[in-house]
Amino acid sequence: MTRVLLAPRTLRAILPAVSLALLLAAIFWLQPRTMSYTGLNLMLNLAIPIALATIAQMFVLCVNELDLSIGAYVGYVACVTATWLVDNPPLGIAALLAGILVYAGLGALIHLRNLPSIVVTLGMSFVWLGVAVLILPRPGGTSPEWIRWLMKLHTPVVPFPIIAATVIAVVVHVALMRTAYGSILRGAGGNPRAIDRAGWSLLKIKVVMFALAGLFGMLAGMALIGLTTSGDANIAARYTLLSIAGAILGGCEFVGGRVSPAGAVIGAITLTLAGSFLSFLRISPDWQIGATGAILILVLALRALINRAEERR
């Protein structure tokens, strides 16, 4: 039993959950009042859009690419949702679908021309930001009624953010980790040549993964507007870095198609809670970004230790 528990594989898998549990325990100890329905609701609300953006980033990481435009894209979706989706729903829906199409096109472009995704998505981040500024030059707009209703939902017993996070994790986990096509998708990150030889189109896989990233980025932007009720082009600028950090925290490897949807959601929640933890400690918000970096380095160091132990066997 202990051997199974201490196996590097198990340790690696439970590391994200353990870090989250430790952080949560520390917060409860510092501020016992957070251990309530309202407390958890308030602390975890903003974790939902971040978790969705992290899942989006995870899809891209899965095929060995990196998306540096996700924050700007979520900002674009937020601006569309806060304006067109309210005033002119067909136009709004078309703009959101266009976003997903652009993502799919980027996947194809990156694959066909063998381009570095960092540069392409860095360029795209300017495009999204520019379009968002054109749609909504000044912060404003309103949230569509139904999104606000959904995000402010008062579920019985368990706070809505926890239910939402669980649903996101389970749905993506089942789709990506438990279906046949899901393992093909992950395989394209692990050994593209093998997948190619087996007759699967790598182009199609990249397009699918980027479109999924676009879809989840869209959900993130809509969820964010449901919480903030007004839009701004720069509303999600932090999401690019948060999503990468969250995915890595949750056990996604940078190459090789090793990803974990549940881990990514847990990673996103950990990062959100880290902010609350610092403010309960009365540490200046200046160190908020630094804490993200420190947590990231700490978890990566632990993982490196586990990997080294594995090699020694």
Partner: peptide, 14 residues
């Protein structure tokens, strides 16, 4: 305007 400028800068790099 700033919006168009961002869009064009991004597109040119791509």
């Amino acid at each position: 305007g700033a919006g168009i400028r961002y869009v064009l800068t991004g597109l040119i790099i791509i």
